[in-house]
Write a protein that binds this DNA or RNA. Structure first.
Length: 552
RNA sequence: GCGCUCGUAGCUCAGUUGGAUAGAGCGACAGCCUCCUAAGCUGUAGGCCGCAGGUUCGAUUCCUGCCGGGCGCACCA
């Protein structure tokens, strides 16, 4: 980050001073391999025509100029057909340690989000049963995205949307009601569709204990009571599970409240008034094809009932009305067919469907145990709940696993592997790095080595060995990771960064006996470096919602 | 059939505005603890980046077609 900004600046000045135009195609990138230097640019190559000299000669000229202007802070080397490999002096990287010491838990944070107001909606599972592992993945992804975006300077509000107005909820009420009748030994005529899970029976039993007269009440009344009770009970369970998973939503938004307030009808009226909705075959249609959808979509069915789509439109319109500039929905990937019509709706609200709205799709989680598939289905009631999974493998391991993959690729979640404390399960690798540094710092304190809270440049100037510099560079790279992750609206890059940083730390630890030797100043300088690494590990883990233990 | 998406080492995956000799872990093989936590480290082997074209100085990346996997195509939720 600092390296790119600085170099961008210098090179721009040089190019301008030479009377050339800064080319759009110029790149500045981190070489994959340290042996090529810290940064590379193809500037010489793309300037060849303008400058009227061959790339090699031009690269020479740029390198010399750069070195002269930066007083030995950098050295540049020519490679390939006109690439310039630039290496910063160790002093440049040592500054990063001071930045970490100054900024602490905020190191890596930025203001690029510029306070943009984002509403991030995630999980939003219907309260018809406990959360399962797929919801867990959405929860981890959404929560970490919120943390990351806030860290990058966005103003994020998280929200859980409850579909508490539709058919599924009626079904829930019926299921509990019938189960209760069954428990009383009354005859039960089971419909085709109802919820089977044990939790339904538990809820029915609870209600019965509290109010034994319930099955004798008029059916409508009893069902309504069942529905209310069941929903509240299940919502409480969901909130409990999310809280265990370290996920918190700021808002809980009810679909029913939207319907009751007439917002959905108002939205439909608005669409009709603007000639975007029309009646056909007794149903009300939204002309989404005008905004690029495959076909028009139904808003109100011919039986008079509203579709979920219509309340979703009202809901999203409501989000914008509340002042949010950008909406992010985290959805199961099986909803991807839903994205074009929602984008159409966003366009109809006069918002940019690409900039002001995005959908993060969460692919399926294959729950395995020792390589064997574990069946899951809410309806049939055979499933492993999120709570059970967390209880078995722990929150840290589960969150890290969910976040160590792009969210839109399917994920095998093998309970045996995630439980294992091995490299198949990198969360321990990263946490171990943090714990190792803590152990080292404790040991140093025991030996009476005093570590200043702020290191000065003279002290840090001792960090010049290639191992030291490699670690310094890795610390600085955290800022880029945050920027890139926030720009992509995805947190999994942080996991990969942490695994890389932890790897470098373990390697460093194995190769450099930090506390050995007589050179106290060097020891202290290295401890300062490691303390900075530990801070960055902690900051990164916090973005993932994973703990950073001091001992393991 | 139409649409979306993915195809990178034996396995699981990184690689986002097109850049150099494509990376990591696991697994395999060979090493490293009288020494700061071996939950660790070092090294070796392993690649037509699905296939074929196109765009250009340059393509794993962009475009087209094909092959293969996943998902979606209701007046469902």
């Amino acid at each position: 980050m600092r390296d790119i900004l600085l170099l961008q600046d210098k090179l721009h000045a040089i190019v301008t001073d030479f009377g050339w135009e800064w080319p759009a195609k110029a790149i500045l990138e981190h070489p994959r391999d340290a042996k090529h230097g810290d940064l590379a640019t193809n500037l010489a190559m793309v300037l060849t025509k303008q400058a009227g000299m061959p790339p090699r000669q031009l690269a020479d000229k740029l390198a010399a100029e750069l070195a002269a202007r930066m007083h030995g802070e950098v050295s540049a080397e020519i490679a390939g057909p006109g690439f310039l490999n630039i290496t910063f002096s160790p002093a440049f990287w040592q500054e990063s340690v001071r930045d970490v010491e100054t900024e602490g838990a905020h190191f890596g944070a930025s203001r690029t989000g510029n306070g943009r107001k984002i509403l991030l909606e995630f999980v939003s599972a219907n309260p018809t049963g406990p959360l399962h592992i797929g919801h867990g993945r959405g929860a981890a992804v959404g929560d970490s995205m919120a943390r990351l975006l806030r860290f990058a300077g966005y103003e994020v509000t998280t929200e859980y949307y409850t579909n508490d107005a539709g058919r599924q909820m009626r079904l829930l009420g019926v299921s509990v009601y019938l189960r209760m009748r069954e428990l009383c030994g009354l005859p039960v005529d089971w419909p085709e569709d109802y919820y089977h899970g044990d939790y339904i029976r538990d809820i029915a039993q609870e209600m019965l204990t509290q109010n034994p007269a319930l099955p004798g009440m008029p059916e409508d009344e009893a069902r309504e009571a069942c529905y209310q009770y069941a929903m509240n009970s299940i919502m409480d369970g969901i909130k409990q599970d999310l809280s265990t998973f370290r996920v918190s939503h700021q808002n809980w938004f009810s679909e029913k409240s939207l319907v009751d307030a007439g917002k959905v009808e108002a939205t439909l009226e608005d669409l009709k008034n603007r000639n975007l909705a029309y009646e056909k075959d007794g149903a009300l249609w939204f002309a989404t094809t005008r905004f690029g959808d495959d076909k028009d979509r139904v808003l109100r069915k011919s039986d008079g009932l509203l579709t979920y789509f219509s309340s979703d439109i009202a809901y999203h319109a409501n989000k914008f009305q509340r002042g949010y500039e950008e909406l992010i929905d985290v959805l199961g990937a099986d909803h991807h067919g839903y994205v074009p019509r929602m984008k159409a709706a966003i366009s109809a609200m006069n918002h940019d469907p690409d900039k002001d709205f995005s959908v993060t799709l969460i692919q399926l989680v294959n729950l395995l145990r020792g390589g064997e598939q574990v069946a899951m289905s809410t309806r049939s009631g055979e499933f492993v709940t999120l709570a059970e999974v967390l209880n078995e493998v722990g929150v840290d391991a589960a969150r890290f696993m969910f976040l160590s993959r792009k969210s839109d690729s399917p994920l095998d979640f093998d309970l045996e592997l995630v439980k294992q404390r091995s490299l198949d399960n990198p969360v321990y690798y990263v946490q171990y790095a943090h714990a190792r540094i803590s152990a080292l710092l404790r040991r140093a304190a025991d030996k009476g080595l005093a570590l200043p809270s702020r290191s000065d440049s003279a002290l840090l100037s001792r960090l010049v060995q290639s191992e030291d510099v490699a670690l310094l560079r890795a610390v600085e790279r955290f800022r880029d990771t945050v920027e890139e992750g926030a720009a992509a609206r995805a947190a999994h890059g942080v996991s990969f960064y942490l695994m890389d940083l932890a790897g470098r730390l373990h390697s460093y630890y194995a190769n450099i006996p930090v506390l050995a030797g007589e050179d106290r100043e060097l020891i202290v300088a290295r401890l300062a470096l490691l303390r900075a690494v530990r801070q960055v590990l902690a900051n990164g883990l916090d973005l993932l919602g994973v703990s950073a233990p001091d001992t393991m």
